[in-house]
Amino acid sequence: TLFEALYDYEARTEDDLSFHKGEKFQILNSSEGDWWEVRSLTTGETGYIPSPYLA
């Protein structure tokens, strides 16, 4: 399933992933509550992002 970022986000820890509004992601793991592990389709990087920032 693909999701798109609604807002920009700046990583706060080394496990987080910074991203920009409009960036698209593949969800790798959504079992961690509000923090999902994703792969950016723009950069190929993986990390955790806050799920409320996605649509």
Rank of each mutant, 00 (worst) to 15 (best):
W35Y: 10
L2I: 14
S30A: 13
D8N: 07
R12S: 09
Y53F: 11
S51T: 06
L17H: 02
G47Y: 07
K21L: 07
Y53W: 09
E14P: 12
H20D: 03
D34I: 11
E45H: 10
D16V: 14
D15K: 14
T13N: 12
G22I: 01
F25H: 00
E14S: 12
L28Y: 13
T46W: 06
W36Y: 03
S30V: 10
L6I: 08
S18F: 06
L2D: 04
L28P: 01
Y9I: 03
S18M: 04
N29A: 10
G33P: 12
F19M: 09
T13C: 15
T13F: 15
L6N: 06
S51Q: 04
D8H: 05
A55Q: 12
E32P: 08
S40R: 14
L17C: 06
E45K: 14
L17A: 02
P50G: 03
P52A: 15
G33T: 10
S51I: 06
P50Q: 08
T43M: 03
G47P: 00
N29W: 07
I49H: 00
R12F: 07
A11N: 03
V38D: 01
T46D: 07
L17P: 02
Y9D: 03
Y48H: 06
G33F: 08
I27Y: 04
T43A: 01
Y7H: 06
W36F: 04
L17K: 02
F19T: 03
H20T: 11
T1W: 14
Y53H: 07
R39S: 02
T46N: 03
W35M: 10
Y48K: 12
E37N: 06
E32G: 13
E23F: 04
T13Y: 15
N29K: 05
L54D: 05
Y53D: 05
D15S: 13
A5I: 04
I27T: 03
G44M: 05
S40D: 03
Q26I: 15
E32S: 13
R39T: 04
W35S: 05
W36N: 00
A11W: 15
T43P: 00
P50C: 14
T43E: 01
I27A: 02
E45C: 11
R39V: 07
N29C: 10
S18A: 06
S51H: 06
A11G: 10
E45L: 14
L54K: 07
F19P: 01
L2A: 04
S40L: 05
E23L: 02
E10Q: 13
P50K: 09
G47S: 15
Q26C: 09
T43K: 01
P50E: 04
E32L: 13
D16K: 13
E10I: 12
F19W: 02
R12I: 13
Y53M: 09
V38Y: 02
I27Q: 01
I49C: 05
D16M: 14
L28F: 04
T43C: 05
T13D: 08
S40N: 14
S31Y: 08
A55H: 11
D15L: 13
I49K: 15
G22K: 01
E4T: 15
A5V: 04
T46A: 04
E32W: 10
G47V: 03
A55W: 10
F3E: 01
P52C: 15
W36K: 00
S30R: 12
L41E: 05
T1P: 11
A5G: 01
S18D: 02
F3T: 03
L54C: 09
F19G: 01
I49S: 00
S51E: 02
D8V: 04
S40K: 10
S31N: 09
Y48A: 02
E32H: 13
L54Q: 07
L28K: 13
S51A: 14
Y7V: 07
L17D: 00
E14H: 11
F25Q: 00
E14A: 12
E37Q: 13
G44V: 02
E32N: 14
P52N: 15
Q26M: 12
F19N: 00
E23S: 03
L2M: 08
K21I: 13
T1V: 14
H20A: 10
D16L: 12
R39A: 03
D34G: 14
H20W: 07
H20G: 05
I49W: 02
W35F: 07
S31G: 10
L28C: 06
I27K: 04
I27R: 04
D15W: 15
G47H: 05
S51V: 08
R12V: 12
D8P: 03
A5Y: 02
D34L: 13
P52K: 15
A11F: 03
H20I: 10
L17G: 15
S31H: 08
I27P: 01
E4K: 04
E4G: 14
L41P: 02
P50V: 03
A55Y: 09
Y9P: 00
D16F: 14
F25R: 11
